[in-house]
Every structure is written in C-alpha cells, then in structure tokens.
Computed example of a mutant assay.
Amino acid sequence: MSQTDYKEIEQLLASAEEEKLVKGLKLIKQEIARVGSSEARPLFEMLYSLFYIDPLEYPELVPVLEEAITLTVGFGSWVIPVLLDKLDSGDIKAQMAIAQALGRIGADAVDPLVNEYHIRDDTSKRIFILYALGKIKSPKIVKAVDAALDSCSASDMELRDTATRAIGKFIESIPPEDLPANTKLRIIKSLKANLACENPGVRAKAIRSLCKLAKYGHLNAEEKKEVHTICQRLLGTDEHFDWDRAFVVRKEAQEGLKYL
C-alpha cells in the first residue's frame, strides 16, 4: 500500500460519517493482513484516533470504536507499552478505550499493567489500570491482587470503588488452589472493612466481591457462614433488624445469598 493509500485511510478515519469510518477500518484490516501485525505501528496510530469517539454522544459509532479496539488488540504484545504511554492522553474517552484494549489483550498485559500501577501515583491513571486488569480473564491475574488491595482503602472514592470491584473480577478467574491462603484472608479483611465505607457503591461492590469468593469456591464452610451472617445483617433479617439503607447494597446481599 502506497503513502497515497495511507493518506486515504487517514482522511476516511478523520470523517464523522459512519460509512467512511467503516471503509477506513476495512482498509486497515486488509493492510494488517498484508504487512503483519508487527509492522503495523503506523496503522495503530490511525486507529488510535478513533479511541476519542464519545459513545454517549455518538452511539451510532460504537461499532466503529469496538472494531478499532479489536484491531488494536490483534497487534499483540508490542502494542501494550504503546497503549500504556497513551494513558497520559488526559482524555477520559481515550483512556477508557485504552483500558478496554489492554484488558482484552489478556494475560500478556498483566505484568506490564501491574508494573505501571506501582510506577504511577496518579489516582486517575491507577483507576484505569485497575479497570483494565479487571477485564482480564486469566489465572495470571492473581499477580494483580496486591495492587487492588493497595487501593481498596484509598481516600479517593472512585479509586476505592474500582479496586473493590476489581477484586471481585479477579476472583472469577483465579482457581481456588492458586489463591494463597494469606492473600485470601487479606481480601476478606479488606472487603469487610469496605462494608463500613460511607459510599454505598463501595459497600455494594464489597459485599458482591465477598459473595464471589463463595461463588467461585474460595470460602470454607465457616467463612461462608460468616458472609451469610453479613448478608443477613445488611438485609435486616437478623435479630438486630438494622438493614443497610442503600438499596443497591441490599440488592447485592440478596443476590449473594444464593451462593452461601
């Protein structure tokens, strides 16, 4: 493909018309197949421009954004550090798309994301890193537990909320035999502490993640009984009749009872 052809793709992807964007993506897909993903860095830069699409303002372009993310994921491991560098873009729409792409890359992204978490002390970047880690479906995600636990007690409520949710997502992918006993106890302690958080969203995610420990086989009989008691307390069905005032918390507790 000539420079003229690349220019055509750039012009197509600069359009706000869905038809032209789809055509541009089709040409990129064909070119990736021709040159190979390892030689496709210029094509990634073109795709990245679509990460700025606002799915709320332009819902009709969501399929375009999804295809751009899918093609980016197909580049493989070389694109991981490039995406991490792009997190500094400062645009929340692009950061969200980056996080989705990193999450969909999967296990290969775990170590780079965890390393990036420890390097960064910027709250907003850590939020997107934990969000991306929560998208990864691999037993290797056990390596990210310490990072999430680190932020489960953060003073920033959005970071704490994201970390508490991430713990539950990690649990879905970690076999019980791969979760060290002391790590499990730290998770339980952290989630129980967040049940006292003033933010109802954090409390809801804390009880959801606790119940996921039961759902995915991480709790013994005594631990299940303890979580069952917690759910009853949140629902106000124990002897104290002092339920959690937030409906979203009670909803998660009610849902979690089926696993206890």
Rank of each mutant, 00 (worst) to 15 (best):
A132P: 07
T164P: 11
P175Q: 07
L210A: 12
Q232R: 12
R250M: 11
M157N: 11
A246Q: 01
E226N: 08
S151E: 04
K215R: 13
I171Y: 03
T183S: 11
S209Q: 06
C197L: 01
G134I: 04
P112E: 10
K143S: 06
P176A: 07
R208P: 00
F170W: 08
L210E: 08
D178R: 14
V227Y: 06
T164V: 15
V248P: 01
P176E: 08
W243M: 09
D156A: 13
A204Q: 07
L185G: 02
G134N: 09
N199R: 02
L159E: 06
H218C: 14
Y216R: 10
E172K: 12
R208M: 07
R233A: 15
E116W: 00
S138K: 08
G201L: 00
I207Q: 04
L113P: 03
L149A: 10
S153C: 09
V142Q: 08
N194T: 02
I129A: 03
I129Q: 03
F247H: 03
S124Y: 13
C152L: 07
K192G: 13
K224Y: 01
A147T: 09
E177I: 14
T229Q: 06
S138Y: 09
L113E: 04
K125Q: 11
A147R: 10
A154H: 11
A204W: 02
L219W: 01
E172I: 06
P176H: 07
L113G: 05
V227Q: 06
S173K: 05
N182H: 11
Y131M: 12
P180I: 01
V114A: 05
A181H: 02
F128H: 14
L219G: 00
K205R: 12
K169H: 09
I167H: 03
L113K: 05
L210N: 08
T229C: 00
D156T: 10
W243R: 10
F241E: 15
K189T: 15
L235A: 05
H218G: 14
I187K: 07
G201P: 01
L213C: 01
D238A: 10
T164E: 11
K184T: 15
C197W: 00
S209I: 03
E116N: 00
I167V: 09
A144M: 04
L235Q: 08
L219F: 05
A206T: 02
D146C: 14
F241V: 14
G236A: 09
A163L: 01
E198W: 06
I188K: 10
I167D: 02
P180S: 08
D121V: 14
S190R: 12
L213G: 02
A166M: 04
F247L: 07
K215M: 10
Q232M: 10
R126Q: 10
Y131V: 03
R208F: 08
L213H: 00
I127F: 12
P180T: 03
A144Q: 06
K135E: 15
I141S: 05
G134K: 03
E239G: 12
R233V: 08
E177Y: 13
V249I: 06
I119F: 12
K225Y: 01
N115R: 14
T162A: 05
I230F: 02
T123F: 09
K189R: 15
E198Q: 11
K224A: 02
N115Q: 14
